[in-house]
Design a binder for these strands. Structure first.
Lengths: 197, 197
DNA sequence: CAACAAGTGGACGATAGCCGTCCGTTTAGC
DNA sequence: GCTAAACGGACGGCTATCGTCCACTTGTTG
């Protein structure tokens, strides 16, 4: 579950690496998560190494590229999001399913600057298109179900919905108000009210 | 009106500059507008000079700093926005006033990447705090009026409103959909519906 | 416990992008 | 024509990041 990223990175080692090497990979992954949360996609290799308490050489030797590391962490994260989407699709109440997913989606994007950027950036710096396409497709179905159930207005496409949800996430938009940590909640509520049939 | 930025930049010349010099200032201002629209706040001095068809030396001689130039253009722009806000405050129907302003606000932000960034960036790269504070204060009053008139839900603050409006503007959020030029319209409609009492 | 392969850290050279100055050349205006 | 004003853009300086390389350290195994 949470070791996926590590496994992914250790997979292509020919023989079992030494204990300290494994430990360093773990540290690097944790550091990458933090850096991704706070700094975003363009967290530098040096920053990640510093956070991990590890030399820059170690980073490159262990994970090959800065991008490979970030990619592994992001894939793990997006996987979790996909799971939430599938759970939402199974909900009895279509509208409630959409609400649940939207909440998770926005919360996770809000929690990590890097995840937010990864889901937005259309330029594929890291190759995440496969997973994010899957995610899109889930949203499309969720919106479809909610509309068929008559719970959601039909003059709005799932693309519009994606747009609106993304807009609720804090960015450097906001007219200069320091956003409280949970600021997105009220925004999401308004948007969902606006989407209701 | 539209010559404000130019006047602002020519103001501190001791004696009347030569005709070609004035022409170049105009070109620089127009180029800065374009660059601001397309590239955003960190349009480089060289890019602006290139767009203006002018040497980089000329830019620095004429406008002093890259920042002074951008600032002049942005101030002009924000001035227009303020005017729209004041007009909206005079509307008979408080809700309609809010809707009108919101529309202008979002459209203008959507039209220029640089304006959008300028209104968001809390770090004061260019000193626009005065004008943007004025703008905030207008929005606060618009929201207040709409709520007093019973036209807008009261569990939402003007800060939340600012947040939501900013969110509707295209950014690099959007799950990888190339946004149509007028994409923000539908988003704005949903948000306004959600804000209605 | 020794010896060596595996691993480590971080200085370093390379690359890139932007800033703003400076000076030889051009041009407007009298 | 003549001169002061203006021009263009090459250039040096600065900052940031990347990723390599090698002298040194440490885990592991017999």
């Amino acid at each position: 579950m949470s070791s996926t990223a590590i496994d992914l990175l250790l997979a292509d080692e020919a023989s079992r690496p030494r204990a300290d090497a494994r430990r360093n990979v773990e540290r690097l992954v944790m550091a990458a998560r933090e850096a991704l949360d706070e700094t975003g996609l363009d967290a530098t290799a040096h920053e990640i190494a510093r956070r991990a308490g590890v030399g820059i050489g170690t980073l490159y030797r262990r994970v090959g590229t800065r991008e490979a590391l970030l990619r592994a962490v992001l894939l793990e994260f997006l996987g979790g999001m996909l799971t939430a989407a599938d759970r939402a699709l199974d909900a009895d109440d279509a509208w409630q399913g959409l609400v649940d997913f939207a909440t998770v989606y926005v919360r996770l994007r809000a929690a990590s600057c890097g995840v937010n950027e990864a889901l937005g950036d259309s330029d594929a710096r890291l190759d995440l298109s496969e997973t994010s396409t899957a995610l899109r497709e889930r949203l499309e179905r969720l919106v479809g179900k909610a509309q068929e159930a008559g719970a959601m207005r039909t003059d709005v496409t799932w693309q519009d919905t994606a747009w609106l949800l993304a807009g609720v996430v804090p960015g450097d938009h906001t007219i200069g108000l320091t956003p409280g940590g949970e600021q997105w909640r009220i925004g999401l509520r308004v948007v969902l009210d606006g989407l209701r049939a």
